[in-house]
Amino acid sequence: MKIYVMSVFVDDQAKALNFYTGKLGFTVKNDIPLGDHRWLTVVSREEPDGTELLLEPSEHPAVGPYKSSLVNDGIPAASFKVDDLEKEFERLRDLGVKFTLEPMDAGTVRMAVLDDTCGNLIQLVEMVKGR
């Protein structure tokens, strides 16, 4: 068994596509019209055949309270791994991405949290060697 797709609920698919490709740098894997919405997945450039991230519409009534409770407490909806957190942080900040948590030590990792502009917080993690 493999994890082939995971989702984040996004307020607006077009806006999400813009953010996840234009800012974070993922590429579109699937973009299939599906009624009012799209089956829209992105993948990492470093792993085109890796796990897909589904940018799923926030339509279901349970999604609003779920997302806002997580954001209230600063809890990320998803976590992505980077090789150099400081470099990514600076690159994204220069692109106008808002960070709710700047890079900090967290035991065996360094981490930061950003706002995906679609109602989610996203964690970036760098594994720290020797910890």
Partner: peptide
Amino acid sequence: QSLFEICVSSVAEDGRTLSR
């Protein structure tokens, strides 16, 4: 600090895992 950040530093600095 957000609740998330407080939890993360509790684990990282105290080495204790406490529930949110």
